[in-house]
Structures are given as structure tokens and as C-alpha cells.
């Protein structure tokens, strides 16, 4: 007879069980709330940045009246609430205000940079996801052996090395030493898709290193859990061939949680792009944020940071939806 050690939990879990549909709606609303909070944080962060905006654009020698005029023109002399509402209402309509540095709308810059970054991220992902999963599953199946230890420790070490370190070593090795790859990520104008991908290969490697360890570790943990589970025992003791046990019973359960990890890492990878794009002189969202921060171009910085947050929230939301759709436990409740 079952009686929860927590007492009363048996009754409560029943009471708290809500349908998956309402869970999804809740999840969606929470994402929106998160984005709202994020936008306030980003805006508030922008206000913390030092100095007088007009002054920092015009320089220390500029005339006091010119500074005041510019501040008025930029709207930076209004109350913070008004400025925030103005900024966010324009932002959601795709109008991301005007760059201080370029004196032109921010949106086209951010759009182009995001597209470039997504290309780079896509190349890295196509390489790392299969590699990481295969490595993790292999390590789990060879648990405790040298293969397992090599994959685990290599993955672990690769994960913690800063991208600029691995990037520089790669550049020294393949760019300068062996001359296999160009040292920049930007293909010459007019080159085809394949050339573009070729230019993106070397820059994607540090990202691959960074992510391989995470994905492999999750895949390994998931596979080991599934291998040790009672249902795998049932499958083996049915007399199923090992191959079928793995494909039908182990992997299906083992890799489901990996989806969420891959997604959250996809979000974080955008952060890694700051360094890679600077190192390989690539016009992406990372280098845009970096340049804007160093140049105190706040509208550009705020827009870039908010877009990064948006991408992260969107990707994790998509992963949660995929997880729900693939998990029969949740999918069943949806009916």
C-alpha cells in the first residue's frame, strides 16, 4: 500500500494536477512576463550607464547649450517612465530608436547582425549536436572504461576553456601554422554559400568545444539513467536483442531531457559570440553589443541586449513545447 512519506502528498498532487494545455498557456504567459521584466532591467541598466548622453556623444569640449539641445532632441531629458514606455512601445513595433554613434535607426544594424550570428550559430550547432549526443551515448554504453573517461574529460575540459583561448590556439594552428582556414569569418563579398560556410568553420570550432561537453554530459547522464532503469531491465529480460533494447527503449527516454539542455545552451551561445565575433572580426550581434558598450551607444546596446534575451526566451520556449510534444506523459494529458 502506498502512503507518501511526505504525508498528504498523494492527495495534493492529485489536486494540483492541471491539464497540459493550461500548463502551456501558463508557460507562454510567463515567457511574456519574463520578457517584460527583462526589458525593464535592460532599460534600467541603460540608465545606470554613466554620464550625460549628449555630453558623451559631443565630447568634453562641446558647448553646454549644444549638449542640452542634443539631450532634448534625443529625449533623454524626459522622465524615466515616459522614456521607458516610449522606448518599449517603439521597440515592439520594430522601431528601435536611433543609434548615438551612427545617427541612424538601430533596427537595420541589429537585424543584419542577428542574421549573421544565427548563421554562425547554425554551423556550430549542426556540428556539435550530433557529435555531442553520439559522444554522450557512447560514453554511457562504455561506462567506466577508458573510452568513457576520455570522452568525459575531453568534453569537460573543452567546455571550460574560454573561446578566445581556444580561438587563438586554433588560429595559430590552422590559420597561421597550417594555413588551412582564413583568419576571418567574413567571406569576401559575392562569394557563394559554400565559401560562406567555409569561412564560418574555424570560428564555429570554439563554440563546438564549448557546447560539446554540455551536450555529451547530458546525453551520457540520460543514457545511464535509462540503462539502469527498471524498464530497460524488463526489455532485456524479455530477450530483446541488445540493439533493439538501445534503440527502442533506452534512447527514446534518454535523449528527451537533452532537448532542453541544447536549447538553453543555444541561448547562452549567443553570449559566446561576443568573443568569437571580435576575435574573427565578424559583424554579428555579439560584436555589435561589444562595440556599442565600448562606444557608450546606449540605444544600440539596449536593442542588442534585448534581442539576445528575446532569442533566448524564444528558443527555450520552443524547446519546452517540443519536450511536451515528444513526452507521452505530457502529450497524453493534453488529450
Amino acid at each position: 500500500m502506498k502512503l507518501s512519506a511526505r504525508g498528504g502528498a498523494d492527495d495534493r498532487s492529485l489536486a494540483q494536477e492541471t491539464s497540459t494545455l493550461s500548463f502551456l498557456i501558463r508557460r507562454l504567459l510567463l515567457s511574456l512576463v519574463t520578457l517584460g521584466v527583462l526589458s525593464i532591467l535592460v532599460f534600467a541598466g541603460g540608465q545606470l550607464l554613466p554620464g550625460d548622453v549628449g555630453r558623451s556623444i559631443l565630447g568634453p569640449l562641446a558647448d553646454e547649450r549644444a549638449v542640452a539641445a542634443l539631450n532634448h532632441q534625443l529625449g533623454t531629458d524626459r522622465s524615466l517612465t515616459v522614456q521607458y514606455l516610449d522606448w518599449i512601445s517603439h521597440f515592439v513595433r520594430g522601431d528601435m530608436s536611433t543609434s548615438y554613434a551612427f545617427r541612424s535607426p538601430v533596427a537595420p544594424f541589429v537585424g543584419a547582425a542577428l542574421a549573421n550570428s544565427l548563421k554562425l550559430a547554425a554551423v556550430a550547432f549542426v556540428i556539435v549536436v550530433p557529435l555531442g549526443i553520439a559522444g554522450g551515448v557512447l560514453a554511457a554504453m562504455k561506462r567506466g572504461t577508458a573510452t568513457d573517461r576520455i570522452i568525459t574529460i575531453t568534453g569537460l575540459s573543452a567546455t571550460v576553456i574560454p573561446e578566445f583561448v581556444s580561438g587563438i590556439i586554433l588560429i595559430l594552428l590552422f590559420g597561421i601554422g597550417l594555413r588551412l582556414f582564413p583568419m576571418t569569418a567574413t567571406a569576401p563579398p559575392g562569394s557563394g554559400v559554400l565559401t560562406g560556410i567555409y569561412y564560418l568553420l574555424l570560428p564555429s570550432f570554439p563554440l563546438v568545444f564549448l557546447l560539446f561537453g554540455y551536450i555529451a554530459r547530458m546525453a551520457r547522464a540520460g543514457t545511464i539513467e535509462a540503462l539502469d532503469s527498471d524498464y530497460t531491465r524488463t526489455a532485456v529480460l524479455k530477450g530483446l536483442p541488445w540493439r533493439l533494447v538501445i534503440w527502442r527503449h533506452v534512447l527514446r527516454n534518454a535523449l528527451l531531457p537533452t532537448i532542453t539542455v541544447v536549447a538553453s545552451q543555444a541561448g547562452y551561445m549567443i553570449g559566446g559570440l561576443v568573443v568569437i565575433e571580435t576575435l574573427f572580426r565578424y559583424q554579428g550581434i555579439g560584436s555589435l553589443i561589444y562595440t556599442a558598450a565600448r562606444g557608450h551607444d546606449f540605444p544600440m546596446l539596449e536593442a542588442g541586449v534585448l534581442v539576445v534575451g528575446l532569442v533566448y526566451v524564444a528558443v527555450t520556449l520552443a524547446a519546452d513545447l517540443a519536450y511536451t510534444a515528444l513526452n507521452p506523459r505530457l502529450r497524453g494529458a493534453l488529450r
Partner: peptide
């Protein structure tokens, strides 16, 4: 534990 002896995904 029959709940754990069966594969939750099949």
C-alpha cells in the same frame, strides 16, 4: 514496481 518496470514512452 510495475510503474517503473514499463517503459513510460511506449
Amino acid at each position: 514496481d510495475p510503474g517503473r518496470a514499463l517503459n513510460p514512452a511506449i
